[in-house]
Nucleic acid binder design. Sequence first.
RNA 1: GGGAGUGUAGCUCAGUCGGUAGAGCAACGCACUUUUAAUGCGUAGGUCUUGGGUUCGAAUCCCAACACUCUCACCA
Length: 483
Amino acid sequence: MSEQEISQFERQRQEKLSAIKELGIDPYGGRYEGSEAAFDVKGRFKEDDQTQRAKSAGRIVLLRDIGKLIFITLRDWSGTIQVGLSKSLLSGQWGLVKLIELGDIIGAAGQLGKTKTGEITIWADEVTILSKSLMQPPEKFHGLADVDMRYRQRYVDLWANPEVMPLFKKRSDIVACIREFLRGRGFMEVETPMMQSIAGGAAAKPFITHHNSLDMDLYLRIAPELFLKRLLVGGMEKVFEINRNFRNEGLSRRHNPEFTMMELYQAYGDYNVMMDLTEELISFLAGKFCENNQVQFDDMKIDFGRPWRRAKYSELLKEYSGCDINDIVAIRKKAKELGIDEMGMDDAVVINEVFEATVEDNLINPTFVMDYPAAICPLTKRKKSDPNYAERFEMYIAKMELANAYTELNDPAVQEENFHHQLRGQHDTMAKMDEDFITALKYGMPPAGGLGIGIDRLIMVLTGATSIRDVVLFPLLKNVVRE
RNA sequence: GGGAGUGUAGCUCAGUCGGUAGAGCAACGCACUUUUAAUGCGUAGGUCUUGGGUUCGAAUCCCAACACUCUCACCA
């Protein structure tokens, strides 16, 4: 279909638009003051008070025309409210009233009352058209079901499917609570570069862009870690950042190429401090946003009740794969059984492959996995008691990695060595040495605990949404090729 | 990138053995001042994702492309 060609529906709506203009009315409205959220109007309604008035604005999502009386359901960001348009109350405006239709945005004011059937209703004595809709809205009962269209036209999805707006409101509330919680504990929010000349702090393929006047290639950041640690060097003691990371990798139910990460650093702390903080923060959120501290997620019932399990990496490996972490022969045998191509992989990588293949699917309730093999943790301080292991934990919920934390490595010599050391079998390693970060460490970084929490995934487990695309307003999609 | 599935009216979906397409909602017309997915009667609406092929004949069978979903791979 060519773009010039407009549908019969759009043509019909254009005619109504013209008819509204002919009445001398601007079909696109303007400032509209004094309107109240539908939710609030319903909340303050009193049974036998005849003097109540209300004024609301929103989109018409249902319309029942009974001749000289029209019932309309208006939806705004807070919910819906019924408006009754009666010819006897609106005789002067009846010409306009008969021209409005599903999808239009209107304002209405009048006495607040109830209908015979008990529905709280604004009996309008004044109606204002605020925006004429030229497009046909989706089916009123099923809404917009086509997932592709829901993501491409989120601006329709948000009002056509009633559960969508509350979900994104909840996301906003959760993020606000995280900020409130952290600020309450003395953390300072900062913003560090999203465009970096060296994409460091994680092992992932970056997106590349170019700055013209500096004639310089830049990477969209894969993590803020190395910049936040520079702030520790600078003397900030408790910092956090909530912002986007970008990773040039595959998409899935759990992966969007741009995703929101909360990273925080606390000077003089360690990974045990981070563990307590993680448990307290997420428990606080679960208590606030989840009924009975539980969430149904797919076929899993997640229980956020404390205390959360804290188990060693080696312990979980033993529990679910049957292998002792020190018995590399048995682990390689297990890897073969699992179909992992372990030839040419370093031991630590094979162990981690087996771990991921056997353990992850069992981690449903919040679980801290502690003490990772040091070889796969280049930014982490090793355990004093056993330098083969690093003071790192990952926290899992519903088989997903939600958080990752370290006792941060602050020895510049060890850090430099780790940057140089490449593990065979790992596709991406720290691509380029960040010399300036090493310089920063040489000035002295206080010992610290650091934590990263994947915000999108956290929203998923707190709301029961099983696809990251349901908690991201505009997830990345392929372009539709237009002829 | 691999595998499986899906793509039909503006939307939600049927479509049997291969015989040129159906419903509900929305739209248009008429009626209706207490509806709740309002109702009743009537009208109109389709390049069956796109391009090839098989066939007398394709929404239906085959091939390819495109998009989406699930899944695997990738993903400290």
